[in-house]
Design a protein around this nucleic acid. Structure first.
Lengths: 209, 209, 209, 209
DNA sequence: AATGAATGAGAATTCATTCAT
DNA sequence: CATGAATGAATTCTCATTCAT
């Protein structure tokens, strides 16, 4: 579906290693996964893993994180760009979030449940910083004219993001943890409506009309 | 302030150990923290740590998790019970979330950033299950009559929770990670208003039209 | 015999480890000796070795080097101080060199055959620097007045040392390597006479008288 | 200058490998140098190194040792043969030692500081044995008639060698280790005079005449 | 209750060596 | 002759846990 798959599913050694590592990380956590485990699952030798990922387990985790996050963010930005209206963009992004999590459950588990904390300094900070910057730049570029036009409220970036994606993210976490059993996308209507209510610049007129 | 402090701040050995362990966990993660590290920070001997927490590191982490979560949840329920209106309850709970995170930053980091994923089997599952059940029971008990009265919408539990707390949780994560620099509570008005908009049973106009 | 033995022969764990390590180092070199080998020979566990020598193999080697060198140097200085004449001091130092090598063959092998080169940065540089400085200071203090009195020639320090100890050192190396089979001390007369010939301040008068 | 250079300086692959290996060996020791390090420094591929030196690292080290030692010994014997008197031979050999070390510092480091100890089984024992035998045979052949004529004292081989070369060797070691900063050859006069004093068969007549 | 030496299983990592291309 | 991916044995080192004092 995205560039992620290109790497993750390839028959190449690096690809096999990534696929095996993702499964293991999701099952036991990064710290709880040994190189030996990755070796067993991937069929590669220890030396081969180090050959392709000189930084060892951390490098493997970093590659997964970066690939996964990039795929998620690309989808997010594409959803915005493909939408025909501001409201559509806000809502499609929510839907993309839910859809992506559902379709890449393990990768989402890895990125959203495991990759955050300290000690799990999972990614090559440098590269990660770069792709995050690019993402936020793209999102802000989409929002700016719409804020100027009054279609979107002028909120601090992080508060805006929290209102937009927070509920979906929270629900997704529970779903990824197995504590929610219905399909995530069942909540798409409810969550995208809430997102629009929270970000929309003219709630009154819209509703009164 | 809460039961947490009772244990965490006491001059007792167990208390010193918990304080030291929390700092280490937040800095290096649970898996990245060795007993030796806790020993060094706490001043207790290895043997003493095992004496007070027979399960070792996991037991220490579990105790922290349970104590912390209980304190958070108690505050949440107290906020609901102390509120004079449904809207007040919904909004006070949001404020409590933000306030508690701000006032217990390390504990919040431990619980909300670290404790989630697999491999970080942080808590004595049994006990944890129990206090979570009690918490959700209390929250639902507060909500049920209000749903019945039409003051709150009738949403699936997890969707309701996500709309209510999701944005605050999302913002809190960023704040705990150092990516948000203004005081969390600055966003209390915005986030509690959004929560009420999302949960409120009478956006009358919307449905009446 | 010296402080070395105190440590090396003690029934203490650290002592057992040092004794075992010395034997292994002499047999296979430092780089060619594994921790596992030291463990097997000493009876201590791997953990115990690291407990007593936190720097691992290098720390063990460093301790041996420092202990051994100190014992050698103490004997050297004592020989000088105990001599009743300048000539006696020069000659007794030569004899001490040969005797010490003969009586501490393995330690001498470790220090004089193994410890020198790069990659075998065997000793805690700091401490080593200190004991070497102390040694050379003591030797120079003994020589200075005798140089002033014309009993010893005024040579650059290193040239003087080379003439004094060089032949004994060279012979000792061959003996330690097994390429010389007679007792080292058999050569004491020849080598100490040569040393005095090389260092003595008044070769002419002495011989002419 | 010698056969050494022929091999070491050639633009040939084997030559590049030897040059790179020598630098690495001197810097990290033989055991501390990996094939990968030699590959990086030489520009050759791993496979190429094995192609030219089927025995791997040990073969490279052995070649260096044999080449270097042969060059040193050839110079030594040439110095003896080229001298016009017994005294000249003894003294020129000393000077050759100092000169050779100065002019082949890294090779000297490799041979005199590293190659000695156990665990550094540096050379193809067979070949080494052979060239050493040839060398000592040549030196003894030069000495024999002069001992018979009373020009040289009749000393045990190793004692004679020690008196002859020991001081130069000792000084050279310190110089190679960077603990002596003046040019080695500055000490040539002093050290060759001492060598002659120690080996000379008729010190009395010589001086009395 | 407290201490810290001892243990040994387990993890990460390196490296010489082979071999197909 | 040259290349470099692949292998897996070997090594170093860490750590949770126990236990005698």
């Amino acid at each position: 579906m995205g560039p992620t798959e290109t790497v993750l599913m390839a028959g190449s050694r690096p690809g096999e290693i990534l696929v095996a590592a993702l499964a293991a990380f999701v099952e036991h956590g990064v710290a709880g996964t040994s190189i030996e485990e990755i070796r067993r699952r991937s069929g590669a030798s220890v030396g081969s893993i180090y050959h392709h990922f000189p930084g060892g387990k951390q490098a493997v985790a970093g590659a997964l994180y970066v690939e996964g996050l990039r795929d998620y963010q690309d989808g997010f930005v594409n959803a915005l760009r493909g939408a025909s209206s501001t409201r559509g963009g806000v809502e499609d992004a929510v839907t993309h979030h839910l859809t992506w999590v559902e379709e890449h459950a393990d990768l989402a588990r890895f990125i959203f449940l495991l990759g955050s904390g300290p000690g799990e300094d999972v990614a090559g900070g440098r590269e990660l910083r770069g792709i995050n910057r690019r993402f936020f730049t793209a999102v802000r570029a989409w929002m700016r004219p719409r804020v100027a036009a009054g279609e979107l409220r002028d909120l601090p970036t992080e508060v805006g993001t929290a209102l937009w994606i927070g509920p979906s993210q929270e629900l997704a976490r529970h779903w990824l943890g197995g504590r929610v059993t219905f399909p995530l996308t069942d909540a798409a209507g409810e969550l995208s409506a809430a997102a629009w209510r929270s970000l929309s610049g003219h709630p009154r007129e819209e509703r009164q009309s």
